[in-house]
């Protein structure tokens, strides 16, 4: 009797964690291992010959100017997505926090874009910005500006940034408004009595208290811009014109599945993995140290 109950208890924990473990193994550890292994191989497009080449893929990659272009594109793109997305979310959160009547209504509306699938969001903005049928280019033409993101790389970047920001700012908004509502009202009142005007109150009292939230969101947004904007780019510019919107993740896809250079594509994946791990470590370090003021 006694033995049996111990046996049951011993097995049960494993059974309970098994689904999560299996998902992690099948969808993360195994593919990551595959990528790592493949990054050391050179294969021809049809898989007839395979050669183990150690770090040659990495060396080739890092000496390829196209890869550095992609890094630059990703950096610029991530900066703007994170910056615009967070600034817009903070502005809207600060305003929504002040709304007393119908605040739920505004907050719900502002959260909606997050529920929209990335491809749908991208197509929505693609249509709005379409040089032939889009509403915004039509309006821009009225003031004498010819919008064509198919030809102009800056405009292409603006399009993917706007679509990505629109998709993400709701997420930032939720965190900022929760952060704002967690700040005791009496602190703001004390600052008002201490002679700080609204603008100064925001930057000297509210903003520092939001900084842990802001840092968390910065990491999340950079990760988002790096990895989750693939659908947006794929549905709008496909990396073009030229290579002007070809981010690192998009390049992984293109080199691997269109160029069929699996070795190089895997090597790029491994480098991206290193970046994500670094960002995560930085975040955990910061969260542990800096969050308590």
């Amino acid at each position: 009797m006694h033995d049996k109950s111990v046996f049951q208890h011993r097995l049960l924990p494993y059974v309970l964690v098994a689904p999560q473990l299996i998902i992690t193994l099948v969808f993360f550890i195994w593919p990551a291992g595959q990528a790592l292994y493949q990054s050391f191989l050179v294969e021809d497009a049809f898989g007839f010959s395979t050669e183990f080449v150690w770090f040659e893929n990495f060396i080739y990659l890092l000496s390829d100017p196209e890869y550095w272009t992609s890094i630059r594109v990703t950096a610029v793109f991530s900066f703007w997505v994170a910056f615009v997305g967070m600034a817009l979310a903070l502005l809207l959160a600060a305003m929504a926090d002040k709304v007393i009547r119908g605040s739920r209504f505004y907050q719900t509306l502002l959260i909606w874009p997050y529920a929209v699938a990335p491809v749908v969001a991208a197509v929505l903005w693609l249509m709005l910005f379409s040089p032939s049928i889009g509403l915004l280019p039509f309006w821009l033409s009225k003031v004498g500006y010819q919008w064509n993101h198919l030809a102009n790389s800056v405009e292409a970047n603006i399009l993917v940034i706007i679509a990505s920001v629109w998709k993400q700012f709701s997420y930032n908004f939720i965190f900022f408004i929760a952060g704002l509502q967690a700040i005791p009202r009496s602190l703001i009142e004390a600052a008002a009595i201490d002679g700080a005007r609204p603008f100064r109150r925001f930057w000297q009292i509210v903003f520092p208290l939001l900084s842990p939230t802001a840092f968390f969101l910065l990491v999340v947004n950079v990760v988002y811009a790096f990895f989750e904007t693939f659908a947006v780019i794929h549905a709008t510019t496909q990396g073009g014109p030229g290579n002007s919107t070809k981010t690192l993740v998009y390049k992984v896809f293109e080199d691997g599945f269109i160029g069929l250079d699996l070795g190089s594509s895997s090597a790029q994946s491994v480098l991206l993995m290193v970046i994500v791990i670094t960002l995560t470590v930085v975040q955990f370090r910061y969260v542990e140290k800096k969050v308590q003021y």
């Binding site: 005791p184 009496s186 602190l187 009142e189 004390a190 600052a191 008002a192 009595i193 201490d194 002679g195 700080a196 005007r197 009292i205 520092p208 208290l209 003021y293």
Partner: peptide, 20 residues
């Protein structure tokens, strides 16, 4: 007048010290 212009000082129940 704004609170700042009334030349008053207030002590709050939760002290309202600036935590940072």
């Amino acid at each position: 007048l704004e609170p700042a212009d009334r030349d008053i000082a207030m002590v709050f129940q939760n002290y309202a010290l600036y935590p940072h």
